[in-house]
Amino acid sequence: MTISYGFLSTYPPTQCGLATFTASLLRALTTSAPGDRAGVVRVVDSPTYLDRPEVIAQLALHSPASEEPAAAVLDRHDVVIVQHEYGIYGGADGVDLLPLLRRLRSPVIVVLHTVLGRPSTHQKLVLEQVVALAGAAVVMTEAARTLLLAEYDVAPDKITVIPHGTPEGRPPRRLEPSDRPVILTWGLLGPGKGIEWAISGMRAVRHLVPRPQYVIAGRTHPKVLTEQGEAYRLKLYARVRALGLAGLVTFERAYLEQDRLDRLIERADVVLLPYDSPDQATSGVLVEALAAYKPVIATTFPHAVETLSSGAGVLVPHRDGPAIGAALKRVLTEPGLAAGMHAEAKRIAQHSGWPVVAQRYRGLAAMLLSRMPVPL
């Protein structure tokens, strides 16, 4: 049995986590099962030139005229996989996705990248309708499943937990006594990333020998740039200066292509995820860090709590610079701690590679197709 998949999502060259996730899942699905194929309806702000053969149509935000052809293209596939985030579809809380879902006749798998613990009434209603219109909904952690069932009116038998896929692990960098330890945070920059608390935490390790270096890599999120300019980044620069950390904190402002990002991750001794939000259900950066077998320090958002509690990382409270500093000092100086975290990260990554995850999605798709009525 071969299966064709229609994806609805942002997609490269768009620079965001959903685009990267979709490209990875598409590649894993079409390479792990000979004969399976896929096409993408790319969500865009405005129509652009189609320069990737797998991108077969575009859904332009605030353009109702693009909805019907997008649905028609998706319906040419056996199963439709929809990536859901409130912010990528038009209308309040992405409500413009609902009419498109109602048009689809192929079974739909919706992948929920965010499950809010304190949704507004409208956010709750939108997500409940998205799940109701789908044949199955995927979350990436048990914590997200528990939250979804507790706070939203959704059918429990529709909810499946499939972890975020991890790329192939990279050889770890060994920390030598003469090396300068590298602490790394990467991703699109904007309020809510918690970088200000991480910078404050660097005060606790500024006297270590050799002196560590905190690298903050990534450009400002395009939507943040449009609405607020570089105000958040400038605020971070000011904090570095005010705390006297200019020699310890550096910024990589460009969006990093994967090869360059891989080299940067390989250099890192610790990956730091200081996110503000307690509702973050999944983090692609966390997944990539584990795939590289890196020790992780993260705030207590659900994905981190569930993934790191077995020993691959250290959890710290949100918005707590001293706690981040104390955790950094432990990982950089406590004998054997980083090595143990490395070993546990390797164990986790080996059980959640993209080929394994793709087979889970394929199994879910096959189940939905088996429930379809047989044509007379």
Rank of each mutant, 00 (worst) to 15 (best):
R219F: 05
V305H: 07
V95H: 14
V111D: 12
S63Y: 09
T282S: 14
A217M: 03
S66A: 12
V296E: 14
L175T: 10
L147Y: 06
H318V: 04
L101Y: 06
L29W: 07
D262L: 09
A204P: 02
V41D: 08
L98Q: 05
A292F: 01
E266T: 10
T282R: 10
H318C: 03
R206F: 04
I162M: 07
F301Q: 07
Q129G: 06
T48K: 12
H113S: 13
S283I: 04
L148M: 06
V40F: 01
R203N: 04
P317L: 02
L100I: 11
I183P: 09
A291F: 01
V110K: 14
L97M: 13
A136L: 11
V209W: 09
V357P: 06
S63E: 14
G6I: 01
L208P: 01
L248G: 02
Q83K: 06
I159G: 03
T250Q: 15
R42C: 10
G39W: 00
E151V: 15
Q213F: 02
K346Y: 01
L29P: 01
E142Y: 08
A345Q: 03
S277Y: 08
E142R: 14
I162S: 13
P12Y: 00
P156H: 05
E230N: 11
Y214A: 09
L364P: 04
R360W: 04
